[in-house]
């Protein structure tokens, strides 16, 4: 197995809230410039894991490193711009598509030229004429594309995606997958993608993490989901119909 340089490294990371252990002693890396899919049953702690990477939550034990630097010592705003997250059903803020795309820069007190917003919209596969549309009038797939564009406006080097295609039709799903591949290849952005869709996880991933009941069960090349010798992983894959 090739040795990858990590974009993010977890070292003995645990997360407990109100005496409930959500993540237990996780150690592992997400390879830089690759797409890693994160799979596991509902309630396994996947979203919590993603929020730890973006600094919306902090580990109760252990350390997470970005390029050998513990993220607990990084300035939270800098961390969140470096590791951007698109959460499941990320809301649109009130206003137009432009208002949503411009939000990350406006939070920094900067202007976002309409030309750049139009380019960003094209990158995510939407017509620049959408800029003046009311964001809440868009379809689910279009809103998800705007959400991804909004996170990319921060020039994030790591893109954290939480079930972003779960509510989409087949065409929108295909478009989002193409978009993520493009962002990964053209911009060299590291992608960590939670998905329930095992076919998608295998199709999209260079690398995979399997998380169950708060524990990291297995990591490796994407085909581990088909070839794993771990009973829990095989049982999960079989259960999901993969």
């Amino acid at each position: 197995m090739p040795v990858y340089k990590p974009a993010l490294h977890f070292k003995n990371v645990s997360y407990t809230i109100q005496q409930t252990s959500i993540l237990k002693n996780i150690t592992g890396s997400f390879p830089v410039g690759k797409i890693t899919t994160l799979v596991g049953p509902s309630g396994a702690g996947k979203t919590t894991l993603l929020k730890l990477c973006n600094g919306l939550l902090s580990p109760t034990e252990g350390e997470i490193y970005i390029e050998d630097q513990p993220i607990q010592r990084m300035e939270p705003i800098k961390l969140r711009r470096h590791a951007g997250i698109v959460l499941q059903n990320s809301p649109m803020i009130r206003g137009t598509v432009y208002d949503n795309l411009a939000l990350p820069l406006q939070l920094q007190g900067k202007d976002f030229p309409r030309r750049m917003a139009g380019e960003l919209l094209e990158l995510v596969g939407l017509d620049p004429r959408f800029l003046d549309r009311n964001a809440n009038d868009l379809s689910g797939g279009q809103q998800q594309k705007v959400s991804i564009g909004r996170t990319l406006a921060n020039q994030s080097r790591i893109l954290l995606l939480d079930e972003i295609t779960s509510a989409l039709d087949r065409v929108s799903l295909q478009e989002i997958e193409d978009l993520i591949r493009r962002v990964n290849r053209e911009r060299g952005v590291t992608v960590i993608w939670i998905t329930h869709n095992l076919e998608q996880a295998i199709r999209m991933a260079d690398y995979a993490w399997v998380v169950m009941d708060g524990e990291l069960i297995e990591t490796g090349e994407a085909d581990l989901l088909n070839t794993s010798h771990n009973d829990k992983v095989r049982q999960f894959v079989k259960g999901e119909g993969g």
């Binding site: 705003i77 800098k78 969140r80 951007g84 997250i85 959460l87 939000l103 939070l107 920094q108």
Partner: peptide
Amino acid sequence: ELILSLGG
């Protein structure tokens, strides 16, 4: 959460 996650 969205605004915090975007660096607000």
